[in-house]
Design a protein around this nucleic acid. Structure first.
Lengths: 199, 199
DNA sequence: GAACAAATGATCATATTGTTCTATAATTCG
DNA sequence: CGAATTATAGAACAATATGATCATTTGTTC
């Protein structure tokens, strides 16, 4: 396992508290004091870690997104089969969001997290890394002759865009029991589209 | 059916919007402007209907509680059998809260809605009416020889208090599938306790 | 078209909130 | 230990948000 310094642990706790409060109230209604109270600390103390409210939000969200991404990346790395890598990637990404309700609610609330144009958003490198992961998984399965050859620039972007849209429109995470089924169905469709014919 | 004047319809719409916003944000974080926006109206317009924010809250909550109570009362009136009246009362009260998530969230948030002491709270007469309804249903079933004779002052208060506690502690409405089962079980226990032995 | 009902936008006082600053407390490290 | 650094607290302040008022306009009723 990885060793975290005291400082890193504290910063994590702060980001988690911030995510919880921002998820519950949204950026506007959430106050620095809410987050400070969540941590049992004076509000001025937070400015030791962060320049202002906006930066606290962005760093906390970046932390949440990175955790999500890391979890998926590790699961993908543990799976040897190229086609199953793709399935694992999709499933882990879904599973994590089901569990992490704070991150989920923030993604639902904040459409600017995945801007269509990449111009100067704070999460650009995280999103680019997600796209790269998708691209690598696809390339791997294509090399192995499992997926047909697709445009490795356009398709990862498309897949990512569809995924994000599902999250934001809350189709995926409605309270009904259809949520899981819809996800499985969608994954099947995408898999069929990618699979190399005649296998 | 009942005919409502334009004015009454407008007032209803305002209370519903208010309940929605207060339920989502709580009294403190909810603003008059939020509610006005929900209605697509300037915030000053609301002061035509209401003296201040607190009064808007109290009237909206009173409206929600009254609707809840009326629904239960009608269902009870439609059921002829004395013992089943009691069952219907409990079930309808439960059902309505499952459906009306705004009212439910407000009850969860605001413990002062059912003060243990009756001294000067705005909902005293509504709560008293609830207690009276319980008392009448009990008296009816006792007269018919279905329930054993119980203290008609203490028991309605107790039942009401238990019910309110369940709501506020959210035992009843947790997200798990146990919610409904727990309610049925609790109702059975109470029914057993009330039923006249030897029937 | 007079009389009333309803909504608006500007305005203002107050409360809330984000942020800064200085003083303490706690911890690290030589 | 004691100095240096890290972390927090609390007071203070400026900017903003918010609740509330009011004069005016728009819409409706009869």
């Amino acid at each position: 396992m990885k060793r975290l310094t005291k400082r890193e642990l504290r910063v994590e706790a702060i980001y988690k508290a911030a995510l919880k409060v921002f998820a519950a109230y949204g950026f506007r209604k959430a106050t620095i004091e809410d987050i400070a109270n969540e941590l049992g600390v004076g509000k001025s103390s937070l400015y030791f870690y962060v320049r202002d409210k906006r930066e606290l939000y962005e760093k906390a969200v970046a932390y949440g997104l990175t955790r999500w991404q890391d979890k998926v990346r590790k699961a993908v790395a543990d799976e040897p089969d190229p086609e199953r890598k793709f399935v694992v990637m999709a499933k882990k990404a879904y599973e994590h969001l089901v569990e992490d309700q704070d991150l989920r609610r923030i993604l639902e609330r904040d459409p600017s997290l995945f801007p269509l144009d990449e111009s100067r958003d704070p999460y650009a490198h995280i999103n680019r890394a997600s796209m790269n992961m998708i691209r690598e998984v696809l390339a791997n399965a294509i090399d192995a002759g499992r997926f047909r050859s697709v445009d490795l620039d356009a398709v990862p972007q498309l897949l990512f865009a569809v995924y994000v849209m599902l999250v934001q429109k809350a189709y995926m995470f409605g309270q009904g029991p259809l949520a899981g089924i819809m996800f499985e169905d969608g994954l099947d469709i995408v898999l069929d589209g990618l699979r190399k014919p005649g296998r």
